[in-house]
Amino acid sequence: MSLRTPVARARGLGSAKEGAHHWWVQRLTAVALIPLTIWFVISVIGMIAAADSADAGYAAMASWMSNPIAATLMIGFLAFGFYHAALGMQVVYEDYIEPKWLEVAVNVVTRLVLAFFGIASIVSVLMIAFGG
């Protein structure tokens, strides 16, 4: 039995900012990625099967992405994958990088780079899907 208040016991053990949300979204994106990654691997193998060596599979790629369901799943895979990666890398940095300012700086750079490539890859999927 302790006579200390809950807040007195919690003080000094770390802050309660956005940890729960981060943890939750990491799991949410992980669950989404289970079917999406399996779909991605099977589809890429399917694309290899359909590929024509004359154009290095360009036509197979275009016809794969011109299917609206495939383009949607691909964008889902990319969005959840990049988000999950950004959240995951942050945890890795938190564990290993000192001092704090460096950890935050590396995290900011990672977030921006992943956001940029995430957006670029989704734009690319849309361009292929619309026959650009």
Binding site: M65, A85, M89
Partner: peptide, 27 residues
């Protein structure tokens, strides 16, 4: 593997950007 996959997503992005840039870049 989580870190490796993060680097891998950048390569997937490169692959898709190449595909959107035309037949030559994709080849």
């Amino acid at each position: 593997t989580g870190v490796a996959l993060t680097l891998g997503t950048l390569l997937i992005a490169y692959w898709l950007i190449a595909a959107a840039s035309g037949a030559e870049a994709f080849a």
